[in-house]
Amino acid sequence: MMIWSVIDILICALVVALAMAALYAPALRQRVMFFIAFGLVVAITWARLHAPDLALAEAIIGAGLTGAMLLMSLDHTSDMPREPASYGLRIGSAAMGGVLILGLMMIVSSLYPIHDGAPTLAVSQRQVESGVSHPVTAVLLNFRAWDTLLELAVLLSAALGILNLGPARRSCGHAASLTDGLARVLVPLLILSAGYLLWKGAFAPGGAFQAGAVLASAAVVIHLTGWEKLPRVGLRSLRLLLLVGPTLFVAVGLLPLLNGQAFLQYPVELAGLLILLIESAAMVSIAGMLTLVYLGGHPHANWPIELVNPKEPM
């Protein structure tokens, strides 16, 4: 069993080293590269800590999408002005920070051994009523469904904030036949695996967020290859795309209120089906929102609606 602690030490050392590199590398471009590597090693850490859902999400969202966004915004960020703060200030803040971090590390280690709280035991006991056999999906979409609904609202508010800002990034795609070929291989595969991830979410690691993120990465590939031939997403369908996830979630949540039950209390026998329904709608919306978050602006000039004349009488 000694071998595992060696591996653990290696992984932790690698994670800390990449974090330091991503924070203190001289040039911005290097930092982004180190950050993407950091995201991938963290995905391996989640796998080591028996959290496959998070490994998927970290690889796709943490390293993939966030990395792609950072790379795309590198071109309009001037490199950092090189005037480091006074030597004393830097040493002082580093020392003070170091002491605080050491204190936090000692306190965290004093928390062990961790024992299961009441909610954890309740999750395993009542797993069968949740309608799905994978515990993480059960917690996400049944026991703590309110968190997930608010999280969709967070994504929606970010997407709306971005849509109101300005035009989206121009696709810098030099439609070379090579990238075309790559996209022709990757995009169908990504869409296929998104569907697979969505379906698998009920009984194994996967689910709406990972599937939505995979779809968004397919959109990133399309944006990079600069395919103009694709049908333009109309304003109304863009709005519908953003809405279908949260709206369906709220609607399914409100139904139980009609016969006196609590909000989001799915009938036990229908729970599995309802969760699949919510997840597929959420996947579509998440894919749309994450693509907009990557594009950094609205694809249509007169978002949110085509006005006949701007001063349309109310």
Partner: peptide
């Protein structure tokens, strides 16, 4: 314990937003 895994998944998505 599945609960922190659900929390972290929510955290990752919020962070990217």
């Amino acid at each position: 314990d599945p609960i922190p895994h659900a929390l972290v998944l929510t955290g990752i998505v919020v962070a990217v937003a």
